[in-house]
């Protein structure tokens, strides 16, 4: 049975207000990674946190930050559990989170129903003049038809430079209108 007390709701809100260590413009609530808060007795609390990527190194910093915030709020004991189910998806990022990412210069992930890699061709990069073959097939049907828009000028004509960027969750793209490179939070 899931009945959250007023204090649990408050603690959940506090845990969710912690900024993401790698994308400090986003809170953990906006990223959608704080799953639940359970209170045992009056001052012992358990928090369920889910990683974005299985190997995301930020999860440890997130746990420590949540612990500190809740301890500062009068909790005596805070346990942060890592949960994998249900698997996190970029669809869990809130609309507010998407807006903040865009403002921060990162193209937000597009939303969809089914998962799977986005079918992309390996476009021209600085080491190659262009694709020699047709685009890769997606393994799952995706509902991604929108273009990845440039977070700087809003242009829809952008190209992939590298499918992995500064972190595993981002790809590096370039806008063909304003020529600015930008990170794209990949759909997962």
């Amino acid at each position: 049975m899931v009945t959250a007390t007023a204090l649990e709701a408050e603690l959940l809100q506090l845990a969710g207000s912690v900024p993401d260590p790698e994308l400090p413009v986003l809170t953990l609530q906006e990223l959608g990674v704080v799953r639940a808060v359970r209170l045992h007795d009056d001052d012992t609390v358990e928090v369920d946190l889910t990683p974005t990527y299985t190997g995301c190194p930020a999860i440890e910093a997130m746990s420590v930050d949540i612990e500190q915030v809740l301890l500062a709020h009068g909790m005596r004991e805070v346990t942060v559990r890592t949960v994998l189910t249900p698997a996190w998806s970029t669809d869990d990022i809130s609309p507010e989170g998407r807006r903040k990412l865009r403002e921060f210069g990162i193209a937000p992930p597009r939303t969809r129903g089914a998962f799977g890699p986005v079918p992309l061709s390996l476009g021209p990069t600085r080491t190659d003049d262009g694709p020699t073959t047709e685009p890769s097939r997606p393994i799952e049907p995706t509902e991604l038809t929108d273009p990845v828009r440039c977070p700087h000028c809003g242009g829809a004509d952008t190209e992939l430079l590298s499918r992995f960027s500064s972190t595993a969750c981002k790809a590096l793209r370039r806008c063909l209108a304003c020529r600015e490179p930008f990170d794209h939070f990949k759909e997962l």
């Binding site: 994998l84 189910t85 998806s89 799977g116 190659d128 393994i139 499918r163």
Partner: peptide
């Protein structure tokens, strides 16, 4: 369930390079 989505990107990366 979690890792299969990550690995899909690994497979896609390998496939694109194999083609190229």
């Amino acid at each position: 369930a979690k890792a299969v989505k990550e690995v899909a990107y690994h497979r896609d990366h390998a496939e694109q390079w194999t083609l190229r």
